[in-house]
């Protein structure tokens, strides 16, 4: 019990410390609007990628449709807050987005989650594209032009706090009965069934939770940037989230944080390079994968209280 307390307090200290650090930066002007923007983008990417890592790294389901669920959260927020521009409206909108994303995840997941590997990736990608095409053609979403003048109801502290909350929820989910069941299916689904675990149910649970956090990320994205368009939620956006997860290490939440921050820095540093930016980015990606295919951190997790150990990468096939 004491061990748990120490671990909890350490994490709390890190979260509060990070908050204070950014706050001091903003107050002293070290963090200008440009850097704040970059930080918020990193924060939203973390929310999205942590959920995607739950799906890919921990439940072993290769999903390429994360941007679809993000789009649902973003559009729900844009539509609701344009009619109800209050903090209450914002959180109601976010909750609505989460609920719709959960329903969509169930509709997508029930038939497709029995597919394996690349087939599931292609199916989820297709589902996300369908969501995008529907948004592209609806009146309420203002079609391909997208929505603008969305009330700015999410500031950087909102993003920061929600990043902490979603991460804590997902990490706690992983370190529980549910998380163990999900990882067992990832490691060997036939063995998992033989000990009474219903694979469909638990895969769906992880998929739905991941989709719900994607909706939260989308909601913050819409409210912070104030403009959204269907083209913000295409295949390339799902892929850039996948890149964060794989770069950090599939199955390492610490890695997801590190990768999101590193990519944020690279992105900001290359801002003035125009097209060359993407060329360098692509080359860096190829080189990293060729020389470190398990990602920056493999399956390592930062932890307090527990004995530290890097998990053996056994199930890498």
């Amino acid at each position: 019990m004491l061990k748990n307390l120490r671990s909890k307090l350490s994490w709390l200290a890190i979260m509060v410390g990070g908050f204070i650090l950014i706050n001091v930066g903003v107050l002293t002007g070290v963090i200008n609007t440009f850097i704040e923007n970059a930080l918020v983008t990193v924060g939203i990417n973390i929310i999205l990628a942590v959920g995607l890592n739950l799906i890919i790294g921990f439940s072993g389901q290769f999903s390429l449709g994360h941007a679809g669920f993000m789009a649902i959260g973003a559009y729900a927020t844009a539509i609701v807050t344009q009619n109800m521009a209050t903090p209450l409206g914002f959180y109601l909108a976010m909750a609505l987005g989460v609920v719709i994303a959960i329903v969509a995840a169930l509709i997508v997941g029930v038939p497709t989650l029995r597919l394996r590997g690349d087939y599931l990736a292609i199916a989820t990608m297709g589902a996300a594209e369908i969501i995008r095409v529907v948004i592209n053609n609806l009146k309420i979403t203002n079609g391909p032009a997208g929505m603008f003048n969305i009330p700015p109801l999410a500031s950087w502290p909102t993003v920061y706090i929600l990043m902490c909350v979603t991460t804590v929820v997902i990490v706690n989910f992983i370190h529980s009965r549910a998380g163990r069941a999900v990882m067992a299916i990832r490691d060997d689904d036939i063995a998992a069934e033989s000990i009474g675990i219903n694979p469909t149910k638990w895969k769906l649970a992880a998929f739905v939770l991941g989709a719900a956090t994607a909706a939260i990320g989308g909601s913050l994205h819409a409210s912070y940037l104030q403009t959204i368009a269907p083209s913000d939620f295409g295949i390339m956006n799902s892929i850039s989230l996948l890149i964060i997860v794989v770069l950090g290490g599939v199955g390492s939440m610490t890695g997801t944080f590190v990768a999101a921050i590193v990519l944020g820095i690279i992105d900001t540093a290359l801002q003035n390079f125009g097209t060359l930016r993407m060329v360098i980015y692509a080359l860096a990606l190829i080189l990293l994968m060729v020389f470190k295919p398990s990602g920056l951190l493999g399956r390592y997790e930062l932890s307090f209280g527990r004995k530290r150990r890097a998990r053996k990468e056994a199930a890498s096939s």
Partner: peptide, 19 residues
Amino acid sequence: SPRIAALITAIGVSFFLEN
């Protein structure tokens, strides 16, 4: 390597060629 790493590399090559 894990297949997901090869897939990401393929995406990287695609980005590289396009850009």
